[in-house]
Design a protein around this nucleic acid. Structure first.
Length: 349
DNA sequence: TATCCGTGGTC
DNA sequence: TGACCAAGGAT
């Protein structure tokens, strides 16, 4: 596999020169000097980075590692505190699984992460990608680490015509053909860095690419047209009403059901979310308590699989109802959709 | 296996 | 404004 080894050398050399400095990353130079990555930090970063950009995840990573320096510290956190700390990052099942995983490692494994892909894969919230990434980056196992970046790079390197998502097994097999026992952690990160900074979805920087000489899509002249994709269904729109009930400085919140959309998070009380808009009478009728509700306009929010138009109504001083009364400063613990509604209200009140 | 699950940036 | 996209996992 002379061709493979030449490609690998070119990409690893590129990574040695210009690996991104990321908060959770041990630089290639430090790795050569014998510095080991902390499995806890690698795992935490990988979970935070699932479907999440580096700039968005970084401040959360810094805050988490400062507050909870070890997996055992994290395992001891109160559920509500953890959910509040995760607020704004999205995909809240990750936070629930994060805590379950930390407690499993702290309890069952005495605070030590499993050092094999199989052992990691058995933990809550750790799927094929995360298990491979932690095995490679933290334990230098020759795991096949395949994320969206790697899929894109493979689709271009080999000009794969099969559209995603059908192409996933093919792309994973192609990626696996490039993995060796040599520097598995650096290889995985080099591939992902290449995808993130050079082999970008739009406007790939092929003139700066260390492996363009091996790239079939580059040879073909239209690298940006890969990976091929099947058309996605369009997003439906839903309508709802959020209610801002205040008592002095406190706002009435509700703890959402443990599973499903925004599961386990604090939120504003809302009506049901449905296909048709709410008129004024319906909005007042759906309120959690009787009060003199005022119309404060509406906010738009986009979830993964639907768009939401949320009307915002506010009232003061009602006593009835079972709420979590929270000072205004505590609204940072809310998912973004509710934060958006609360901010709209503050502007309009 | 297809669907569900957030958010913010970019073009 | 809208469509796409980002270091996916659970069910």
């Amino acid at each position: 596999m002379k061709n493979r080894d030449a490609l690998r050398s070119a990409l690893l050399a590129w990574y040695d020169r210009q690996a991104r400095a990321l908060a959770w990353r041990v630089s290639p130079a430090d790795r050569r000097a014998g510095v080991r990555a902390d499995p806890y930090r690698v795992w935490l970063s990988e979970v935070m980075l699932q479907q999440t950009t580096v700039p968005h995840a970084t401040p959360y990573f810094l805050s988490f590692t400062q507050r909870w320096p070890t997996v055992s510290d994290l395992a001891a956190v109160d559920d509500g505190d953890l959910m509040a700390a995760w607020a704004g990052l999205g995909y809240y099942a990750r936070a629930r699984n994060l805590l379950a995983c930390a407690r499993a490692v702290a309890g069952l494994h005495d605070g030590v992460f499993p050092d094999t892909e199989e052992g990691l894969r058995a933990l809550p919230g750790v799927g094929a990608y995360t298990a491979a990434a932690v095995a490679a980056i933290a334990f230098d196992r020759p795991a096949n680490v395949v994320d969206g970046n790697v899929e894109r790079v493979m689709s271009r390197l080999f000009a794969v015509e099969t559209p995603l998502p059908d192409a996933k097994p093919e792309l994973k097999a192609l990626a696996g053909g490039l993995v060796t026992d040599d520097r598995p952690g650096d290889w995985a990160q080099a591939l992902m860095d290449l995808g993130a900074t050079v082999c970008k979805p739009k406007g790939p920087l092929c003139d700066r690419c260390p492996v363009s000489a091996w790239c079939a899509a580059f040879k073909g002249g239209a690298p940006e047209t890969y990976p091929r994709k099947t058309r996605k269904a369009d997003r439906p729109r839903r309508h709802g009403v959020a209610y801002i009930l205040t008592r002095g400085d406190a706002v009435a919140l509700v703890r959402r059901p443990p599973k499903g959309l925004l599961g386990g998070m604090l939120g504003l009380p809302t009506s049901a979310w449905r296909a048709s808009p709410y008129d004024d009478a319906e909005a007042v009728a759906a309120a959690p308590v009787a009060a003199s509700w005022r119309d404060l306009g509406a906010v738009e929010h986009v979830f993964t699989h639907f768009s939401l138009t949320l009307r915002v109504f506010a009232a003061e001083g009602a006593n009835a109802g079972d709420f979590v009364w929270t000072p205004r400063e505590g609204l940072g613990a809310l998912p973004s959709v509710f934060l958006k509604a609360a901010r709209a209200a503050e502007r309009l009140i």
